[in-house]
Design a protein around this nucleic acid. Sequence first.
DNA 1: CATGAATGAGTGTTCATTCAT
DNA 2: AATGAATGAACACTCATTCAT
Lengths: 210, 210, 210, 210
Amino acid sequence: MKKNAKEAIVRAAISLFNSNGYSGTSVRDIANLARVNTATIAYYFNNKAGLLEYCFMHFFEQYIGKIEEAYLSIDRGAKECLKRIVSDLLHYQCENSQLASFVYREMSMDSQVVREIMSTYSLKEKYYLQKIFERGFEWQEFRPHSIPYLIIQLKGLLMMPFMNTQYMREVLYIFPNEPFFEQKYLKDLHAWIDKTLSFEGPMMKGAVIK
Amino acid sequence: MKKNAKEAIVRAAISLFNSNGYSGTSVRDIANLARVNTATIAYYFNNKAGLLEYCFMHFFEQYIGKIEEAYLSIDRGAKECLKRIVSDLLHYQCENSQLASFVYREMSMDSQVVREIMSTYSLKEKYYLQKIFERGFEWQEFRPHSIPYLIIQLKGLLMMPFMNTQYMREVLYIFPNEPFFEQKYLKDLHAWIDKTLSFEGPMMKGAVIK
Amino acid sequence: MKKNAKEAIVRAAISLFNSNGYSGTSVRDIANLARVNTATIAYYFNNKAGLLEYCFMHFFEQYIGKIEEAYLSIDRGAKECLKRIVSDLLHYQCENSQLASFVYREMSMDSQVVREIMSTYSLKEKYYLQKIFERGFEWQEFRPHSIPYLIIQLKGLLMMPFMNTQYMREVLYIFPNEPFFEQKYLKDLHAWIDKTLSFEGPMMKGAVIK
Amino acid sequence: MKKNAKEAIVRAAISLFNSNGYSGTSVRDIANLARVNTATIAYYFNNKAGLLEYCFMHFFEQYIGKIEEAYLSIDRGAKECLKRIVSDLLHYQCENSQLASFVYREMSMDSQVVREIMSTYSLKEKYYLQKIFERGFEWQEFRPHSIPYLIIQLKGLLMMPFMNTQYMREVLYIFPNEPFFEQKYLKDLHAWIDKTLSFEGPMMKGAVIK
DNA sequence: CATGAATGAGTGTTCATTCAT
DNA sequence: AATGAATGAACACTCATTCAT
């Protein structure tokens, strides 16, 4: 247990950042929860900001990884590719719901630190989505539309369940970290791709390709 | 200028809470921006928490007001009613984008204060949406579907542009407080209602009624 | 009730000063208890210090008054006179136990304000007691002894029950504002005068005078 | 000097609490006098209240210790034992006059903190005094009398010189921390035991035992 | 590898007081 | 005669951070 103090710190940090926010969490709180000395955090991450940075990096490294990996299958069609991305990202969020929730929230703050980390990943994500949408328009899989507005909608649908998990649980009785949710919500996301984004449903794709 | 110190405080608070978060903002920062003394904040709102509460109340009072008002037109059809709600809420958010942005973010925190204020409004909102969806199913305007999952999607689409305005501006070049955005995004929301939520478009409704 | 706001303030002040001490009591607390506005206190007493001063003056004016009045009967013998003083002061303390308790405590602070008020009264008190003791020695009513040391003992015995009323009540089950206490304790004080201060008891006095 | 910051804080605290009272003293004042940082006080004592508690504990631990130690000699007679207690306590107070003065004053406040600490010690003290008085009555060393009333008088005589040292110095010209005072006042206390408490003087004890 | 001691800056809050009304 | 609005200064306390060990 004492061996990986670093991991314990990260775990504690994610949990507390998620409940109380970054500036609402003190390094002492984290240290207490992780059962290490306060100075140990400085030892591993230099700063409180360093710890935040580590969490963000950790999250987005994998986040972008999923997108990049799925993008390799672009040749099987834009819709197919997008569906896979949506599926993988949803799965990733479900598995790391606390981290996702906290990262999405903190992203919206004016922090210089966050801003710098984010920009790279945001641009990468935009790049891939843009590519896929353009391909979809070209091959007439998707209804022509403003790409930024599509990105908003897609991200809105994807992120929403993790932006306010407390509301999800206590008002809607939906539990985003249960496997049942993942299956069910994935269908809804695919429905959006099929109905709103695409021309008129899954069958169209075949017709066009031919 | 000295007359309405209270209003100045609220304006400053919304702005700073939006950029730095609630716990990332000190009452002294607010006081400085509002050009009043720190103690004046305590005089009007007792607490920093009291100021937060005031902002939340202010926001949700109007937010629910819009929904209640629009709900009166339920007899003209569920889809029509829902479209009006979406339109009004979007407009309200655009006009108060800072407040909306900050409220949506802070809602996701584990604060006891926020929790208590929220619960009432969240339940009211759910109540009206539920009524509308049920009516839509009954009159066969909407595809039958799990109501909570519809609420997530609707709220996701509605809230997303205001959850991370910085990302919107700097990555997607979309400016949620400009009138152009409102018009354009409203169409997308209506498209979701027509394509994904409803059976197959605006004309269907008449057909069914017949 | 609104007529004599001043009296209400004083009453509230005595009560709160007694429980929480002078610096432990805020003018807002006093104002709240007296059901007046905070500024009303400033109106009547200028200062918080002014209110304290008023309480002290009020207490010592009467305190010294009792001594002066009793001193008029010095010709009936020093012991007789001292017993009357002791009796009157004890009675006065019992009737104003809260005020007495608080004044005795606050006297021991290094406050400049208190110091100045006190000095006059302390010197007056000392003057009369000194006179009485000297007379007692001269007429051989009292055992010759250092006057300051006698004053300490006398004051110690007189003040003690009011210096820690909470201890009196909760540990010794003695209630200094009940009439029973006054009667009983007065006997003890007289006993001290008879046994320790005087030569050998009440009867001696007559013998000497003869 | 930097080594024992804790001790420096306690010394400074006792001095300032004594002059200005607990609530009249700010932690910054204490920190300045002790030449440490304000936060250092929180580091060692958590709270301002924690520092107060420490002072009280420190005082009463030794105070009760003196009583308990002296009580061991109860077999040599109640009067003898009581005289030793009085002697030891007087000596202890003289050596720690500032602390004693401040503790006695603060005891009379309605503070919850103080109340809790006190109760234990007050009861212990009462227990031993009661035992001694009862023994004294039984062996006919002491005049039968209500024990609580005896305790008041004894404590009044013992504590008085330290309850208002400023008055002692400036009005009576008595300096409670000088050795001369201790000797002289001890005689007075013994006189009270011999004259008022006991039957008729030191020799009586032997007579009764026979 | 990890920590206990200590800190300067900053936190939210409360204070006694003022002043136009 | 009495007050509501507003304040500057002070309050106890917590913060992230440093550094010798």
